[in-house]
Design a protein around this nucleic acid. Structure first.
Ligand SMILES: [Zn+2]
Ligand SMILES: [Zn+2]
Ligand SMILES: [Zn+2]
Ligand SMILES: [Zn+2]
Lengths: 172, 172
DNA sequence: ATAGTAATGTTATAATATAACAATTACTTT
DNA sequence: AAAGTAATTGTTATATTATAACATTACTAT
């Protein structure tokens, strides 16, 4: 049984995003139930806000939206929720952006890489064993024991390559 | 002619670091001369400070040292020098640490990955075509055009694995 | 109900980074 | 050399990202 390449493709521009949100929320609730983790209303709301798009969102953007909700939120509120969500694997931090994006396959423990479109800002997540093993091989040369990997690739997604016009959803 | 794996090994704990500094400085001056870039006294000093170890150093640590030198430096002074040094490839930014480390092979354009020892803090740089091509392959699956890659691997270097004692140079 | 734990609220501040404009220095042209 | 120009650095202020510390509230378990 060969290892599988698990990838979230980039969402097509016309896709029905509410399905993404529903799926992510359902999966999050299921996982938290199984693992006996508490997806409180606040944490759930932060998770929903992160899933409002496939673009990473910053902590302070989330804070603004919580305040718009009518909550009396402050920075620590957001950072605590983000800590919870990233620790249980529901959300990933994109280091090169200081921002957070929903995980597409939280139920599988995986070494992910991110592909970040510089035209539309969307991120796809790729768990490719070949990529992991390349890292491991590189490490071996150095006599280095790998604990964790961070891979963030910047470029242009298929859709944005297709529309060569200057009408991206957002410039980074 | 097969592509070469270019790697800076982790420095041995007893290595003569002043040789690293001399080599880096010499190379920096050579490159700047060739490319007609201005390695001013300030920039050179920042570069030297970065090379005081193989550990990434933050902008504000550099600022402190400049002030210790007797300069009237402020944050923008440091960030401007860092911008110059990173843009001409003499220094790399380690995104996951908000810190900066000297480049070991600035004369070659390369897609580098960083291996960061969590025990001693030292960083090695690896330019492995196999790693780059794994990224490219992953991208191809997604229909993604790669502009740049960021790879930061955390773990334990050979020396720190060897000394299982709790006497690392520095804990991260 | 009461005690204990986890989560959230609240205030303050640390750490990282940049904008804007002034002064100085270095380079070019005369 | 002097003047003009561009690049660099100085300076002040502020934006952005993140955490520490302690108070309060909500949930659990006896
Ligand atoms: Zn979607
Ligand atoms: Zn795109
Ligand atoms: Zn050295
Ligand atoms: Zn080490």
């Amino acid at each position: 049984m060969s290892k599988e390449i698990i990838s979230s493709t980039f969402p097509s521009p016309q896709h029905n995003h509410s399905e993404c949100v529903d799926a992510a929320l359902g999966e999050a609730e299921r996982l938290c139930r199984i693992r006996d983790l508490r997806l409180t209303p606040l944490r759930k709301r932060v998770f929903e806000l992160i899933w409002q798009s496939h673009r990473p969102v910053t902590a302070y953007e989330l804070l603004d939206r919580l305040v718009q909700d009518g909550r009396r939120a402050q920075a620590p509120t957001v950072y605590r929720s983000l800590e919870f969500l990233t620790e249980c694997g529901l959300v990933h931090r994109v280091e090169s952006m200081n921002a957070y994006v929903g995980c597409n396959q939280p139920s599988r423990g995986h070494e992910v890489g991110f592909f970040i479109c510089e035209a539309c800002g969307d991120v796809a997540e790729l768990a490719d064993p070949a990529l992991s093993s390349s890292v491991t091989k590189g490490a071996k040369q150095l006599g280095f024991t790998v604990h964790s990997r961070l891979i963030e690739v910047r470029g242009t997604c298929r859709a944005c390559t297709a529309i060569k016009t200057d009408d991206p959803k957002r410039m980074l």
